[in-house]
Design a protein around this nucleic acid. Sequence first.
DNA 1: CAGTAGGCACTTTTT
DNA 2: GTGCCTACTG
Length: 821
Amino acid sequence: MPHSSGDHPPFPTRADADTRMGAAAVPARGGGSGIAARAQAAMRPAAAPAPYLNGLNPEQRLAVESLDGPVLVLAGAGTGKTRVLTTRIGHILASGRAYPSQILAVTFTNKAAREMKERVGQLIGEGAEGMPWLGTFHSICVKILRRHAELVGLKSGFSILDTDDQIRLIKQIIQAEGLDDKRWTARAFASLLDGWKNRGLTPDQVPEGEARAFANGRGRSLYEQYQERLSILNAADFGDLLLHVITLFKQHGDILKEYQRRFAYMLVDEYQDTNIAQYLFLRLLAQGNTNICCVGDDDQSIYGWRGAEVDNILRFEHDFPGARVIRLERNYRSTRHILAAASHLIAHNEGRLGKTLFTDVVDEAEEDMPVTVAAVWDSEEEARAIGDEVEALQAKGHSLESMAILVRASFQMREFEDRFVTLGVNYRVIGGPRFYERMEIRDAMAYFRCVVQPADDLAFERIVNTPKRGLGDASLKLVHAYARANRIPLMQAAQDLCHTEELRPKARNTLRNLLADFDRWRDQLASGMSHTDLAEIVLDESGYTEMWRADRSAEAPGRLDNLKELIRSMDEFESMTGFLEHVSLVMDRDGQAEGEKISLMTLHSAKGLEFDTVFLPGWEEGLFPHQRAVDESGRAGLEEERRLAYVGITRARRRAKIWFASNRRIHGMWQSTIPSRFLDELPADHVEVQEPSRSYGGYGGSGYGASRFDTSDPFQSSYSTPGWKRAQRAAGSGAAGGSGGGFAGRMGSDERRKTGGPRTIEGELVAKSVADEPSAFNIGERVFHLKFGYGAITGIEGNKLTIQFEKAGRKKVLDSFVERH
DNA sequence: CAGTAGGCACTTTTT
DNA sequence: GTGCCTACTG
């Protein structure tokens, strides 16, 4: 369908209005009933161009209308990506090209799936139910697998293991192999396994070298045993959901063909986050039908560490011959300063497709604010200063909802929480442990699983002695051995053992009672009791609720609340089984929106969100970019950190405020830090360096730190002057003053550490936390420390010193941060 | 078998 | 500094 350039306004006002109005912490919603009505109108036969296309800019429109063949939409931050996706679906439907059931639309998270469902629903004017194949990779794969489970060695009712179950299962296998489970931890193997599955590797496909590297060459055999156990348990882990489908497609061409035929159009959101397995899945389907549209932003790929392959998006044109690449570069979210800062920063990455974002967004209410960078003495002052700014903005009438603090690592959150509690500022932490990952919820779920699936060994193990019933290791070992010997589920083994003399009478009795309980609950469920009532009965009669009621700890009441909430949420499901399936796939819970609050989260969980004001604390070498990312992944790691910085800045609509501290407590020890290299990479024209506040120097301005600090770090003193960039570069090549640690070659090559010598790669600035040599200091020596001043050494462990400071009290510090006096 | 003390490690997180 | 896991002891 040819499109003329005259039938839409040059500047799409709708999306613009959306970003301007929304103060809420959610992506701008597109359209309302108006669009729905227009979409419906569009479905009537008419010669006029479909009205739902009206608000789109030329590139967006092209992306919506290029329906045939592979399309890659490179959508920069804030360029209306979701809108394109949903409108494209609407367009496919409205133009009568396919039925809703013929469209495969995959997202990464349940949240994204939900949002898309909602928006498509609005667009086409009907409930979300019309799109059975809109969902996450995992939920779609489960749907496919349930139909063909037998072909991959499962039964259709297979259960899905969560990470917890997975770890416990691996631990059992490692122990059964007689391996040292401290040297070869279950956690380590789990992540190895995860990596393999992310790459679509079945046990026989794991490269020899990698398989050998674990447990003295037994990696492959462990993987095989693990899969065998899963098959016996009739269970699959998250990785399997994709892997099994890939195997299924590869081994059964007829089935693959069926799905290729079924999916007339395929859409993929956040393509830069796909891993190899997901890529293979798409690739197999796209072999029969090339109408695949992937939307993503290579600059926002921040999940490489969990298997995402930026390469998937970088290689798209190669992988899908004849692909059309459409760039969305008009940004509807941020002011020019924010966009310029982000673009300039990300331009330092090499491995990218390259986009040039531009914007017309202006903040009329205030003068166009440059991105600000502010220096503070330590993390405490950072929290104090940001708290002050939050209150100042609030006083000017800005809502807390429009602000967010984005940190690199969750340990940074605590100080802000403390500060907000003190100030009485309402805050909300986004991310963190999910509802269904809480201990009490998992325990409760395990009870339910045992009722529904008597063969669910992992669930049974979890609750057999929770609450404490006196069924300890000894008794459990017997049950285990018996179950394994007879290849039967644990519960059945327990049943059998109750009729023998092997168990101690007390344990036997307890066990018999527990099994009788489960039998009774099963009967009740079978005889028509509602699953919510049963759930309540199970938790009460098992003594589980009582356990928490009797618990005196602070969390106990909250846990009881969570259990109530769990039971309440079961109402929405038809059966216990339906509920369990939902929970294993949808591990999140929305809600908690009440009240006006500032949001506190990691940079990772901020992706996809936007706020008027974004605070970005902790821009220091070692923390951001994180030392470990650089150490473990070299240049690639650094580039991913930079993308994270890009994501952080581009979350801001109006104000982006960056902070760095000169001192931070890491692993319980105070360390001097220097500003992040990312600060160097911001364009001076769009950045304003804030003068250090009066409190700079900490300790009530006693001054002993500040004066010393100024002279000891050339970069610091010059940061607030126009020549700050040059000054910092000078600091890079010259002496690093007393701030400790070698400062070798900022932005060096990505070569791994040279053999021998101290670790000084890529501007290693965080001192080593392990001692290579005995400390040069002695107990009793008088020393000087930048942050704490003078003190005497009272203890030494390697390079860690315990010092009694004259003003600051007793602290543990690294020896490289003090000097003799 | 259960409660407690010392040891260790500690980025990011979805399904 | 703190939380979590393990090993020891009552």
